[in-house]
Structure formats: C-alpha cells, structure tokens
Amino acid sequence: MRLEAKQLSFRYAKGEPPILEDVDLRVGAGERVALVGPSGCGKSTLARILSGYLEPSAGKVLWNGNILPKKGFCPVQLIGQHPELSVNPRHRMSKILCEAYTPDADMIAAMGIESAWLSRRPGELSGGELQRFCIARALAPQTKFLVCDEISTMLDVITQAQIWELLLRATERRGLGLLVITHNRALAGRVCERVVSLPEINCAL
C-alpha cells in the first residue's frame, strides 16, 4: 500500500518549459506527508497527476507497484481547494454525497453533516459545509489514499480546524495515506509526520 511517483515530468505542450521534471516521491501506507512550496512551483499539477486527473508527460505513478487504473474507481482520490467547483451546482447535496457510494449515518455524523443540509443545493451552503461533503464523498470504501490540495485555504481558521479534526480521525481509523498540499507551514507541521519541499525534488525549478 504505497503511492510512488517515478521520474514524473509534466509540460502543457511540446516545446514549452516543463512544470515538473524528474519528480520522485514515495508515501507509505497510513503515512501523512505534507508537500510545501511557493505558488507556481507545480504543487497542484503534481496533485492532479498523482490522483489520475492529468497524464504525466514522462514517468509514471505507481500504486502498490502497479500503474494507476485509468478506468473505474481510482484508489487515490483528490480533494480540492474550491469545494463549490467540485460539486454539480444543479444537484442536491444528498445526490452529491452518494456519487461513489452510499455513506451510512455514522459517516455522515462523523463528517459533521447536518441532515437538513442534504436537501439543499450547493449554492445554499458555505464553503466549509461543502468541503465536508467533498471529504465524505472521497472517503469511499475503495479509497486507499487521499491527496488534499489546499483544502482549507479558503476557509476560516475555526472551520479549518474542524475539517482537519474530522479528516484526521477518519483517515487514522482506516489507515489511509495522506498527501497534504499547503503553503501554511504551521498547518503542515500540525497534521503531517513528514514535510517535503517540492522545489527540492522538482528539477524543473
């Protein structure tokens, strides 16, 4: 149970300068690693490649030594910075929550989701509330690893602490691995066991 990036490179088009070059990264089972670096150093691009949203230009992403599956449920799930963009604005929250699986009542309670929110649409909830849904949705039984890309940057500090409290509890119970992307060093130190600086492992910079 490990997520590995082997010699990952990425560029948007041939001839353009690479955003990532020869990036190697390894996160073990149940390990929590923070990825830090200034804006524009390729953190979000790496997150999208590791969770299968983007194809690397060179190199590969390995899950337990195998290439990440292109079809079907991806064991590596991504939670993004803007929850309001990650949910279909025309769906009700109950439908959004059950995108991949049907969470039980315990799960919904553990995520701090109130039953009244389920009948609402995304436009009627705040960012912090929507982010709880995105986390619950990503915590499907088949999920083995979570990539969190600045998931609390747009939230106030109280909501941030709430979100991390429940996310850490859920991942610890299930032994999920976690890659946390943040520019907040204090936060990285709080939630992760190991901090990796992307500029140090990214040869493009």
Binding site: V157, I158, A161, W164, A186, R190, V191
Partner: peptide, 11 residues
C-alpha cells in the same frame, strides 16, 4: 483554532 496555537476548533 490556529495551527500554531492549540488547533482546537469549537463545535
């Protein structure tokens, strides 16, 4: 609730 302080949220 700040990470550099207690990092404890209120409910």
């Amino acid at each position: 609730a700040l990470p550099q302080n207690a990092f404890k949220p209120i409910a």
